[in-house]
Design a protein around this nucleic acid. Structure first.
Lengths: 245, 245
DNA sequence: TTTTTTGATTTGTGATCACACTTGTATTGA
DNA sequence: TCAATACAAGTGTGATCACAAATCAAAAAA
C-alpha cells in the first residue's frame, strides 16, 4: 500500500504541522461576496456585474462568475431574464416567508443544541455577551459592521452545536437571503433609538445553560423576529403614507 | 420612457405569445445533473470529472465546471481536498440527519399546503394516483426511473401549493442530497418484495382533501421515512454480519 | 419637443489555452 | 522481491478571446 500524506503524519516533525489546505481564488471571492451579502453591504435590487466585481476584487472574471452562479443557486442573488444578476428586492411576502423558514429551522437547530451543549460551550457564548457590553460601552464609533459580525458568530456558535451537517448550510443560506433585509432593519433601529439587543441574547444563554430546548427556541424566535417585525411595520407605514399622497 | 419588451405586450399579437426564455448550456447541464442525482443515476462515493462529464454531455468543460460548483454549494456533491468531486457517501448519521431535516421542512410545507390547496389542485394529485396504478398493472417493465419521476412530481405538486418561495428550494436541495440514498433503498425494495407504495400516497391525498394539516404531515412522515428506515436496517444488518466475519 | 433609429459600448456565455497539482505506471535501485 | 524514484497522462483552475445580446447615447425624423 502506498503511503499517503496523512499516513506520514507519525513523522515527529510533520506531526507539528497543520495541513495548509489550498484555497482557490474562487473560494475567496465566494466567501467575500457572502460576507458582504450577510452584512448587508449590497442593497436590495442592486445589480452586480461580473467585470465590475472582478475589478473590485482584483481578479479575473472567471472566479467571479462561478461564485455568482453559486450564490444564485442558494437564492442569495437573483438571475434576471436579461441575464444580469441582482440582490433580491425586499417585499413583505418574502420577508414573512424568510422569517417563517428561519423560525422553523433555526428553532429546531437551537432546540437540538440545547440538549447537546456542554457547560464549556455555553460559557463560550456567554463570554460573547461580555464582548457585546464592551462594544455598547464605547458606542460612539459606527460599529454596525462589528455588531453584525458578532451577532453572526453568536448564533452560529450555537447552531454548530446542534450536530447537523444538513441544517447548518440551510441556515447559512437563510442568513444569506435575509442579510439585506437585516441591514435595512438595523439602520432603522439606530434611527429610532434602539431597544436593548442584548436582552434577547441573555434569554437565549439562560435557556441553554439549563438545557431547556423549548425556552431556547422561544427566546430565539423573539430575537430573530424583532428586526423583521420592525422592518415590516416600517414598510407598511411607508406604503400607507405613499398611498395617501 | 423607453419601451421595453414587456411593455410592448399590449400589442394584440404579442399578447398571445409566451416569453421564450433563453436557456443557457450551463442551465441544461445543471438540470441534467440534477435529474441524474435525484434519480440516483450516480452511485454514492462515485467521483465525477469535469472533462468526463463534458464529453458525456457533448459540450465544453466550461458549463460543466460551473454546474458542478453550484451542485457542490447545495451539498448535492462533495469537493474533496484533492479538488476532485464525488457524490457524497452514505453514512447512517447522514441518513438520519437528512431524514430529520426532510420531516421538519417537508412536513411544514405539506401542512401549509393542506390549508391552501383548492379542490381542483387536490384532484390533480389524486389523478396521479391513478397513473401509479396503471404503472403497477404492467409491472413487467423495469420502470424504476418512471416511478422515481412520478413520485417526485407527486410530492412537488403538493409542495408548490404551500406558497413559499423559500421552502421549496430547500426541499429541492434535500431531495438532491437524499437522491442517491433513495435509489439504493428502491433497489433494496424491489429485491425484498416491496410493500404497497401507493398506500401512503392515498393517505396523503385523503388528508389533503379534507384540509387536515396534521394528518397530512403524519402521512407524509410515514411516506418519506419508509425508504430511510428500510435502508438503515439494511446497512445495520450488513455492518453486523461484517462485524462477525 | 417627442419619438424613432442608429451606432458604440458594455455585458454574459462559451471555448480554448497555460499552468500547477495529482495520479498512475514504469523504471531503477537496494 | 520490494520500495523508491522518475516519467507520463490526467485533472482542476485561472486567464484570455470571440461572439451574441443587451444597454446606452446621440443623431435623425416626426
Amino acid at each position: 500500500m502506498q503511503k499517503t500524506a496523512v499516513e506520514k503524519s507519525n513523522d515527529p516533525i510533520a506531526a507539528q504541522l497543520a495541513p495548509v489546505g489550498r484555497e482557490t481564488v474562487q473560494d475567496r471571492v465566494y466567501l467575500e461576496l457572502r460576507r458582504a451579502l450577510i452584512g448587508g453591504l449590497f442593497e436590495p435590487s442592486q445589480v452586480l456585474t461580473i467585470r465590475g466585481l472582478a475589478d473590485a476584487l482584483m481578479t479575473s472574471t472567471m472566479p467571479v462568475r462561478e461564485a455568482l452562479g453559486r450564490l444564485i443557486t442558494e437564492k442569495a442573488l437573483e438571475a434576471l431574464p436579461n441575464r444580469s444578476v441582482r440582490v433580491p428586492p425586499i417585499t413583505l411576502e418574502r420577508m414573512d416567508d424568510l422569517l417563517r423558514a428561519r423560525i422553523l429551522i433555526e428553532g429546531e437547530a437551537i432546540a437540538l443544541a440545547a440538549t447537546r451543549m456542554s457547560p464549556r460551550q455555553v460559557s463560550v457564548i456567554e463570554s460573547m455577551l461580555g464582548e457585546w457590553d464592551e462594544m455598547r460601552a464605547l458606542r460612539h464609533k459606527k460599529d454596525v459592521d462589528r455588531e453584525v459580525t458578532l451577532n453572526q458568530r453568536f448564533h452560529f456558535e450555537i447552531y454548530r452545536a446542534c450536530g447537523s451537517a444538513v441544517l447548518i448550510p440551510m441556515i447559512e443560506s437563510l442568513w444569506l437571503q435575509s442579510g439585506p433585509c437585516i441591514r435595512v432593519a438595523i439602520y432603522a433601529f439606530s434611527e429610532a433609538g434602539e431597544v436593548d439587543t442584548a436582552h434577547f441574547h441573555r434569554g437565549i444563554v439562560a435557556a441553554l445553560s439549563v438545557q431547556d430546548p423549548t425556552a431556547a427556541r422561544e427566546a430565539l424566535v423573539a430575537d430573530i423576529s424583532r428586526p423583521f417585525n420592525f422592518l415590516r411595520n416600517k414598510l407598511q407605514s411607508e406604503a400607507a403614507s405613499k398611498g395617501k399622497s
